[in-house]
Structure formats: C-alpha cells, structure tokens
Design a protein around this nucleic acid. Structure first.
Lengths: 210, 210
DNA sequence: TGTTTCCTCAGGGTATTCCCCGAGTTTTGA
DNA sequence: TCAAAACTCGGGGAATACCCTGAGGAAACA
C-alpha cells in the first residue's frame, strides 16, 4: 500500500482526491494539509508521495518543493494545479517535483502518476508533454514566413546585438563604419517589424533567426 | 498514391529508402536528387513530401527548407539525418520541416511519418520527442540560481520592455514617473548582470525570468 | 521597533539608438 | 550582361537609454 499525502487549501479538492482513491487497493491518502507550514511540520516520514497544490496561503508550492525535499529526500512530489502553464511545469520540475497533474485528472491517471514517480520516473500528462514540446520547438513554421529573409551581414550584426555589442563595438569588430552598422540596425528593425532593439532580440530568439 | 521525393548526396541512402518503400502501395519515390540546387530546380509540383538530408554538398538542408518551401508552399518536408541533435531538430522545424527522421528508421515509421506530415501533423520519433522534453525541462536548474531575485515591479517592467515599450510608455502605462522606470531599468541591468536592453531581453527569454 | 528592502522621484549629464535624407560600390542572379 | 539586391558610408537631428548621486515614504521582516 502506497501512502500518499495531499496539501491543498481547498478542502473540497482534498475530499475529491480522497474519494477518488477510496476504492484503490494500492494507494491510500494517509495525511492531508492545507498549508506549506503544516506540511513541513506534520508530514510523516512513512509517506512516499505528496500531492502538492501550487497556490497555497503561505506561499507557492513550487518554491516549497525544494524545502520539503530537503527534509524528506526520499519523498516524491507531484504538483497539483489548475493551470496548464508551461513555465509552471518547468519550475515545478526544476524544483524537484517528479510529476505535474491538472486537478481535472481521473483516477487512472492519478494512480499511474503515483506509481510512476515512486518508480523514479517523471510523470507528465500527455497534453502537458505536448505543450512543452510545442514551446520548445517554437511556433515559427507559420510565422517565420512573415519575416523577410535577413542577409548574412544582417544576421551577423543581429547576433552581435544579442550579445550586447553596441553599434560602435560592432563597427570595430567587423571593420566597418558605425554608420553602416546603423543602417543595418535600421533595416533589421524595419524587416523584422519591431520598433526597437528589445523587440529585435525577442523576435530573433523566439524564431531562431540567427 | 503519395508521391515522395528524396534529396541525399549518398546514393546508397536513396537506394535504401527506395527499396524500403518498394513494396508499399501508398507511397512511391518519384524523384531523387543529390543536391539542393537540383532539388529546387527539378522538383515536380506533384510531389507532396520531400525527404531532405541535412548535410548536402551545396549547403545545409536545414537552411534550404525555407527556400524550397517558398517555391513549393504545399510541399511537406521531412528532415533525414544521422544526427540526434536537439538543436538540429529545432532549426529544422523552425525552418518549416514537418518531420525529423533518423536514417536508421524503418519502413513503418517512414510511412507513418509521411502520412502524418501530409495530414498537416508534425512527426518526430519518440526518442527525439523525449530528448526535446528533457532539454526543455532540464536546462535552467543551475543557471536560474545565478540570477538574483527580481521584485514584482521589476518583473512587470521587464515584461513591458520585452514587449517593446519605451521608458516613457511604461511610465504612462503603470502610472509612475519616467525617472522611476529608469531606476528600475538600471537595477534590472545591474541585477541580471548585462550591459544593455538587448542583454536584458536575451537573458529574460533564455531563463524565463518573467 | 528598529532594519532592510522595495518603490518612488529628482537633477543633470553622457551614450546610444533610431530616423531622415542621399549615394557610391560590389555582389548576385536571371 | 544588366538589373536587383546587398553592402558600404555620410550628415544631422530627435528620441531613448544609461549612469550617478541623493532621498523620502511604505511595506516587510525580525
């Protein structure tokens, strides 16, 4: 029997999960908390998996992952949240969470996730995996077409701009006049369709123009 | 019958693929090229899918994707390569490739991929998807720690900078003085450890500070 | 109840970017 | 081979970003 704890400030969620797992012969909810402080103070060492809400009254569950894991190194944490937000997932995983579930999960998925993290595997729902993949690949195939081709010189200069070179430094580095560099900068802003260097850097990184 | 073309400078690869698909009733290799120039010049408009090698004598297949797609907007490109390199995959997809296959692929996978891209879906082998996922999840745990925490106000302003707002526009938007915005900008540059807005935007996007 | 951090704002100045104009040379490609 | 595109450079000016110093009020924290 796998002992699982849950931390969520909404009692309804706790009860929901409890009900969901009531009939399970493999998993049991042995503890429930409504805040990070409670969890850190009261978690029983026998608990193997913690379902941890992200929005808690006394702080972010994501941030708390680190601290909790420091005291309970063998614990596996599954983040539990309403938000399908890529950056949340990343942060949670980076802070040591092994899984990330949405609150509309079902019994099968919940048990699968618990078993997976207990086995040392990472567990992410399929749609979350797809979101991460999309984010990682960028949405460029369509949008890239909108950006006119940059010339080699323009790409070169754009690369240096991203590396924080000023116009003067660029000119010195590639042996051309600062006026020429200014021309290229203006053309870049024009071509890419932004209004300043910040936009230039953003679009370049987002779409991998360089 | 789906008409497929292949571009690869190794005739052996071409013949291998041809043999692999010989028995297929759905897919046929109708053209084969050994360079980008040949491909661009000779590709028949009827061809629906192009298997494109990445290393070609007259340039990179990845770069060529854009040009080829400009001339054949309805074509679907599957990159074909020996390299399991995440950045290659990303670049290929960003340049419009709909799939990325390793050369040790088998018949089933090849046909699956062709059908998928033809249906407008992206096709990546499972191990490539996993690599992307790992890369996406695992990059920042160390690097994020190097950056001092930004305050809420700083994050807010950084977000607006990335959206190309000028100091004046930011001040107007959040109802504070331009001088205050300048303070925040200076502090941001200081904290993040860069020397100008370009660096600020780059680091913010790279490490997901906002 | 202090101390620190955050947020606010200012003066005054320098550096850099951005934009307008025009124009010559070189390279590319049909 | 001829036109287009790319690369080069200039003057001059307005807008924006960046730096330094200093400082008061508010909120968070111990």
């Amino acid at each position: 029997m796998i002992e699982v704890a849950i931390t969520d400030d909404h009692v309804i969620v706790i009860e929901g999960i409890r009900t969901l797992l009531k009939s399970s012969k493999e998993v049991v909810i042995s503890q429930a908390f409504t805040s990070i402080a409670e969890t850190v103070g009261g978690l029983h060492p026998r608990v193997q998996v913690l379902l941890l809400d992200i929005n808690l009254p006394d702080g972010s569950g994501i941030e708390a992952c680190k601290d909790i894991l420091q005291r309970f190194p063998n614990l596996r944490i599954i983040a539990l949240t309403n938000y399908e937000d890529v950056s949340f997932v990343k942060q949670a995983i980076r802070n040591g969470a092994m899984g990330y579930l949405l609150k509309n999960t079902d019994k099968t998925q919940l048990i699968d996730a618990i078993k997976a993290v207990l086995a040392g595997e990472r567990y992410l729902p399929k749609n979350v995996r797809e979101m991460l993949l999309n984010e990682s690949l960028g949405k460029a195939p369509a949008s890239a077409a909108f950006i006119p081709k940059l010339t080699n010189r323009e790409k070169e200069i754009l690369g240096l701009i991203i590396k924080e070179y000023t116009t003067e430094e660029i000119a010195a580095k590639i042996f051309i006049s600062t006026k020429t560099v200014e021309s290229h900068r203006s053309n870049l802003i024009q071509k890419v369709g932004v209004k300043n260097t910040a936009g230039l850097v953003r679009v370049a990184l987002e779409r991998g123009l360089i």
